[in-house]
């Protein structure tokens, strides 16, 4: 029981962090058709800038300033980089972001060095908020949850209740039509790209100290974000939310089960010889498959339901 409650809470926290990261990516993809490989790099940039700003003027200003800075950088990259390659098609755009991810990592190395940063949870949030069974539950996790839920609600309201949001929604599916109506579609693209980057930056600011802030943090988290947007359905915010929570739960709960195929066989009273064919296959426990499950889910999803859980169209 204890394990389930704690795991449920933790998968909620991690899932919402994942969602914050992937919401920007799914919007960018849905609208511009760009599979942004540098998205996790914006997350890394957010963590580093968040650290730097919090060293100068504290964590709370950093929570606002760092995502805005990342958003401005993102918008600039869209305006002066992506827009240039747009005429060469989606493959070139994708490769551009691929190269961009490389460059951002190099720049971070150049500015902050190779060593992981000493980026810690702020003292004002560093306490135990309640005791769950015997475990302490840290206040910072609750804070992360609050920030991400607030962000989801704000984003949802912005997209459904404001004029800009409605234009963005329209441009998601009918970019040309929106252009015909006299809206500046390139500018909408820039706003969405900048906004998506800022969201990733925000995830970096609050995730960087909770996890580890190091030059490899983008590579470690990058692929899983793609899984989220594919499973959720590209361009769908609700889908990304469901997929984030699902994948977080999948990885968190797999830990709890140490059954292997041998156990399955014993259930049917079959005994394995001492030297079976594929000796490794039988040894694998469910808890070891954590890193494998999301990708399996993604490939299966792409084959059988390419539009994802909530997606409305195929890529």
């Amino acid at each position: 029981m204890e394990f389930y409650v704690i795991s449920l809470l933790n998968s909620l926290v991690f899932g919402m962090l994942l969602f914050m990261l992937s919401s920007g990516l799914t919007l960018i993809f849905g609208m511009m058709g760009v599979l942004n490989f540098a998205h996790a790099s914006f997350y890394m940039l957010g963590a580093y800038l968040g650290y730097q700003v919090s060293v100068f003027i504290g964590f709370w200003p950093a929570l606002v300033i760092a995502p805005i800075l990342v958003g401005i950088i993102g918008a600039g990259i869209e305006r002066y980089g992506l827009r240039t390659v747009h005429k060469y098609g989606h493959v070139a755009e994708l490769l551009f972001t691929f190269g961009l991810a490389f460059m951002i990592e190099e720049l971070i190395l150049l500015i902050w060095g190779r060593v992981a940063l000493n980026y810690q949870v702020p003292a004002s949030l560093d306490f135990t908020i309640f005791k769950l069974f015997e475990s302490d539950f840290p206040a910072y996790r609750v804070f992360m949850l609050v920030v991400s839920v607030t962000m989801f609600v704000a984003l949802y309201l912005m997209l459904t209740r404001t004029r800009t949001g409605i234009i963005i929604q329209a441009a998601l599916t009918h970019a040309e039509g929106v252009g015909m109506l006299g809206h500046n579609v390139p500018r909408v693209f820039m706003i969405v790209f900048g906004g998506g980057s800022a969201l990733a930056g925000l995830a970096g600011v609050i995730g960087g100290n909770y996890l580890v802030t190091s030059p490899s943090m983008a590579i470690l988290l990058g692929p899983i974000v793609f899984v989220v947007i594919v499973v959720g359905g590209m361009g769908s915010l609700t889908g990304a939310l469901i997929a984030s929570l699902l994948i977080a739960a999948l990885q968190t709960f797999a830990v709890g089960y140490d059954y292997s195929l041998v156990d399955l066989l014993t259930l049917f009273n079959i005994e394995l010889g001492s030297e079976p064919l594929f000796p490794d296959l039988w040894r694998i426990k469910i808890e070891n498959t954590g890193p494998l499950l999301p990708y399996l889910l993604m490939v299966v999803m792409l084959i059988f339901r390419p539009k994802g859980i909530m997606g409305e169209r195929e890529s």
């Binding site: 989606h90 692929p223 793609f226 899984v227 990708y295 490939v299 792409l302 890529s315």
Partner: peptide, 12 residues
């Protein structure tokens, strides 16, 4: 499928 679906399957 070609295009993005193919690229993503290969990534997965």
């Amino acid at each position: 499928k070609a295009g993005t679906t193919f690229a993503l399957i290969s990534l997965g």
